[in-house]
Amino acid sequence: MTRIIHLIITLFMIAGCALSAYPQRRVTPVDPTVKKNIIRQQPGKPKPLDRTHIVEQLDANGNTILVDTLTGLEVIDSLAIADKPRNLYPKYTSVSIGLNVWDPIMRCLGQKYGIGDVWARFSFYNRFMPFAALGLGNANITPDGLNYTWKSKIAPYLKLGFDYNVFYNNSPDYQLLVGLRYGITRFSFQVVDVTVPGGYWKDPATMNIPSQTSTIGYLEISLGLRVKLIGNLAAGWAVTFRSLLNQSKCPYGEPMYIPGFGKRGQPLGASISFIYTIPLNYSPSSKVHKSEQTSRQPSEENL
């Protein structure tokens, strides 16, 4: 008898373990056969609600519903549904000024072109950010194993565009930015110390290709991160995809390097910036409370 009882208990335990492996079935205390009268607001036909016998309750999903204890009517409290605010930050959020040090760093690592740029970014709602950059670039490149030295004088470039902060309702200390920019530059360049091998005739020639001036416009698409370092100081990284849009004709060959763009034929670029931000209408230390931004007074119309 005792063995039988032990066997039954063991079977119950095994069955319990097996059943626990399946998702637990939810049991609701609400009788599904009872027809609910949920009043849906008809557009353009506001219907006043008699609040005499109204009590607040929570439904199975955690939504607040208003129940008329006399008639049994249930009304969804639309005011209790928190709308996601469109923009948490003020229209004029901040101004950022940055120094792009990518080219100076790469120069230290052996790169033979580029100087750098300073840029400014105005932040609207911590979301839309017009962008402008002004920089300088030059080059003096003598590739190994090739027959020339490519030079360009220091020349300015300008970039205009905008960034979009994906995390616009999060802290401005951390931003994920997608940007589109148009860059333009005008610069002079020349190729010197060219040695053309003699080949079949065995009479090598030397030459300098005359100086040429070119105006070039290009498009940049960037994906960047901005991270707060300390106080109002931040660092930013960006990877850019670049494409030439327009350029003036160069009878002696197209330029190898373009200020602000980099080397021709290399569509990928990067930037590293140190950024100083001037907050305009918010304090970086204060938290933005969603409830304050979204709270509204209930009205009959919203019910």
């Binding site: 490519w150 190729v191 190898m256 021709r264 034929g265």
Partner: peptide, 9 residues
């Protein structure tokens, strides 16, 4: 005189 490209010279 003509500059073809970075790699072609």
């Amino acid at each position: 005189p003509y500059f073809a490209s970075e790699d072609c010279g």
